[in-house]
């Protein structure tokens, strides 16, 4: 919970991690990738305020105590969604596999929502595993990382034929929140790995599922925005946008927020800190205090108290069926920002 100027905010951090990237977990022969991956993440942390930077050693592996302090005690976070990222090609026990995440689930009952994952290339065994994960952990969501390498394959697309049974199973089991993280590679390698048109296809084919595109489709925010305007079940995950831009690039951040509020709208944007890349404290406080820097931004929708409440927690709570006490609800139900220009996309 965060309180400022008499307003109370329920904070549901939709993108949080508990990873182990320490050298003990590196796969023999793949050390350079395991090391390179975490060093790249660590560099991203450098885009946050200096007082929030960690040493690389601490960054590679933090404890459950650190998590509690940074997220729940200092970070104003009421509940956090754990996204599982396996990367077992590089990390022996996975980068943050569901079993690791489940440890924290026991320690912080009622405060963590555990998401699973699947990889369409795993076929029958993958479908079985998804059923098991659902039975054991009651998962309501999955995180998909399409650029993960598997054997000789360097990625996959959501509209690949082998992905369809997975979405059908999600629909059957009620795993209704599909978090999508695009990466630099897919098959074939000569196509744009970050392309989000596959999300567009499956969002249309599976209208009962919600598709939360993490990092607002960065670096393809424009394709993401045009698509989200068309698809009612496509949402924007704000991780990286806040952590990577709000401090380091305040003017870019203002433009990105303005465009997201215009194209996607305040009802479909979800705060995510991407902890441990960035601590939630400065992000939550910064978002609540934030406004456009000057009048050159006057043609973007306003960042109202209502919008802040929705984006910081109420939107994610709706998707995950979390009951939020009345004191955190929005009082003013006036219409969100101007979206009448949604038809802009059709004239492309």
């Amino acid at each position: 919970m965060y309180e400022a100027n008499g307003e109370k905010y329920f904070v549901l951090d939709s993108h949080s991690h508990f990873w182990d990237a320490s050298p003990e977990n590196w796969v023999e022969g793949e050390e350079q990738y395991a090391k390179g991956w975490i060093e790249c993440f660590h560099a991203y942390q450098g885009l946050g305020p200096p007082e929030t930077h960690w040493s690389i050693e601490h960054f590679m592996k933090y404890s459950a105590d650190d998590y509690e302090q940074d997220v729940f005690v200092d970070g104003h976070v009421d509940m956090a969604i754990f996204q599982s990222t396996y990367l077992k090609q590089w990390y022996r026990n996975g980068f943050n596999a569901i079993e690791q995440n489940a440890e924290l689930l026991e320690r912080f009952p009622g405060r963590i929502i555990l998401n699973g994952r699947f990889d369409a290339r795993e076929g029958e065994p993958g479908l079985r595993q998804l059923r098991e994960d659902h039975a054991r952990y009651g998962i309501q969501g999955v995180k998909l990382y399409t650029a993960e390498w598997l054997g000789s394959s360097r990625g996959w697309k959501l509209d690949d034929r082998e992905a369809i049974p997975f979405f059908e199973l999600c629909q059957e089991l009620g795993i209704k929140n599909i978090h999508v993280h695009k990466g630099p590679t897919i098959w074939p390698l000569d196509k744009d790995g970050f392309d989000v048109s596959d999300v567009d296809h499956v969002a249309t084919s599976f209208p009962e599922l919600n598709f939360i595109v993490e990092h607002v489709g960065l670096p393809r925010i424009e394709d993401f925005c045009f698509m989200a305007t068309q698809e009612p079940n496509v949402y924007a995950g704000l991780s990286v946008v806040v952590g990577g831009l709000m401090h380091a690039r305040p003017r870019f951040f203002a433009k990105v927020m303005g465009e997201l509020l215009f194209w996607v709208g305040e009802d479909k944007m979800l705060f995510g800190s991407d902890y441990g890349i960035w601590e939630p404290k400065w992000q939550v406080e910064g978002l609540v205090a934030w406004d456009y820097p000057d009048e050159t931004f006057s043609d973007y929708p306003r960042w109202t108290t209502e919008a802040k409440k929705k984006v910081l927690g109420l939107n994610a709570a709706r998707l995950y069926g979390v009951a939020v006490p009345a004191e955190f609800q929005v009082t003013d139900t006036s219409a969100p920002g101007d979206r009448t220009d949604a038809q802009l996309v059709e004239s492309a």
Partner: peptide, 13 residues
Amino acid sequence: RRARLVGLSLESN
């Protein structure tokens, strides 16, 4: 509007 969003994307990246 469209051009501004595409421009912003390129600039952000």
